[in-house]
């Protein structure tokens, strides 16, 4: 990747809060939160199901409007960043358009971002996610893991410098997930995008991120902020290392003793 790319953005959340519904059916998904994601780092958000981590990510992506507070991406609103095409989102569901081929799905992202079509770059990217030879296949002809690879390729096709990954490996089986965990991050680590990753898997969080935020149950609050000081690139062998196990253990402790964590948090 050329080094003259602009520096990946800082993401600053100021008093960010989200409430869904009206009147008696109000649900507070995210309590007022201040957090900064530093340029070029990967941050994992972990927490119990439905705790509001996806809501946080969706507000950064501009897919939800905050009830209070704001998100600034390199000083600009998410909507502005979306329009520039420098932000990319990947979801748990690959959400490929079933009537388009892999190539056409990946190229779609460039089209939507207003970037010129670049067949060589698209095919190169498809090859790098391991789908060479499947460019002209439609999603129905691919396995779940392959679809997820295609979705990641689409996500990277615009060369975004802010990546928002909402459980991108959540729907594939454990073996495939581990493979994707080890293979795919190389594609975005090198150009150095700022990355937010929502995940249910503690080991995935440790493997992929520089920093892990543990969120409490609804309304989500950040109960722990853990640095992952493992060297990059991360490898399969690292998973068995003591340092890796140590971080994993630390996160699990907080996650599975959430009530205690909540109390501890309140007391502080």
């Amino acid at each position: 990747m050329p080094s003259d790319l602009p520096k990946p953005p800082d993401v600053v959340c100021n008093g960010l809060r989200k409430v869904f519904g009206h009147g008696a059916q109000q649900v507070e998904a995210l309590a007022s939160t201040d957090v900064t994601f530093a340029s070029g780092t990967t941050t994992a958000l972990v927490g119990p199901s439905g705790c509001g981590k996806s809501t946080l990510l969706r507000m950064v992506a501009g897919l939800e409007t905050p009830t209070e507070g704001s998100v600034l991406i390199a000083g600009e609103s998410p909507r502005m960043t979306s329009k520039k095409g420098t932000l990319s989102v990947a979801f748990q569901d690959p959400s490929l358009l079933p009537w388009r081929t892999v190539r056409s799905n990946v190229a779609l992202a460039r089209k939507l971002a207003g970037q010129p079509a670049d067949k060589t770059a698209v095919d190169d990217l498809i090859a790098r996610v391991g789908l060479a030879g499947f460019e002209d296949k439609r999603p129905a002809a691919l396995s779940g893991g392959m679809r997820q690879r295609a979705a990641i390729a689409r996500c990277l096709a615009t060369r975004p410098n802010l990546l928002l990954l909402d459980e991108p490996f959540g729907a594939v089986d454990e073996l495939t997930r581990r493979r994707l965990n080890l293979e795919l991050p190389r594609l975005w680590e090198k150009p150095g995008a700022t990355t937010l990753l929502v995940t249910h898997s503690v080991s995935e969080a440790v493997l992929l991120s520089d920093r892990i935020l543990v969120l409490s149950a609804r309304p989500a609050t950040i109960v722990a902020d853990i640095d992952v000081a493992l060297e990059r690139p991360r490898t399969a062998r690292m998973i068995d290392s003591a340092a890796f196990r140590q971080v994993e253990h630390e996160v699990s402790e907080i996650l599975f003793d959430n009530k205690g964590a909540g109390r501890r948090f309140a007391a502080e």
């Binding site: 897919l63 909507r79 979306s82 329009k83 989102v89 979801f91 959400s95 939507l112 971002a113 689409r154």
Partner: peptide, 8 residues
Amino acid sequence: DVFNSFAT
């Protein structure tokens, strides 16, 4: 959502 994330 994918379309929306590009402000389409």
